[in-house]
Amino acid sequence: MSTLNLDVYMPVVILIALALLVAGGSLFLGSLIRPQHPNKLKDTAYECGEEPVGTAWANFNVRFYVIALIFIIFDVESALMFPVAAVFKRFNEIGLGGTLLMSILTFTLVLVAGIVYCWKKGDLDWVKSFNQTNQPTIARKE
């Protein structure tokens, strides 16, 4: 470990600590000066002037989850692409650029196939386009 110099991560740690300090400090400072008069009406959630009805989350919106899944796949793909893209220039100068280009193209085109599949099957549509039975369910009153 003698040649490993971790001083380059110091600013990261310092800045995270500073962020916590700024947030905590300003909130603490505020708690000394600001008024604190809780009453029942102020503590209820805002629903445009009405009394809040029902629980806060009753819909089963699966499209959020599908988007998150597709995002994760592409995120991992980009994480794998980064090191290969970083050495592409060097490989190009040596002369091995063609083979690496083929690899990058194959990698990307496989994932393009994936997104084309999702597109065609309607997973990327935000508004559901099929029949009525698949409308989001309304909250059940217990």
């Binding site: 916590l20 947030a23 505020g30 600001r34 604190q36 102020k42 503590d43 209820t44 806060a56």
Partner: peptide, 28 residues
């Protein structure tokens, strides 16, 4: 800073306080 800090009675206190701090840490 001078405004009153209201936490609604239904809110999840720990997460309520954590969310702005998390945003700030990410940006800093």
């Amino acid at each position: 800073i001078l405004k009153e800090d209201i936490i609604t009675s239904n809110a999840d206190k720990f997460t309520f306080n954590l969310a702005p701090v998390l945003c700030l840490v990410g940006v800093f």
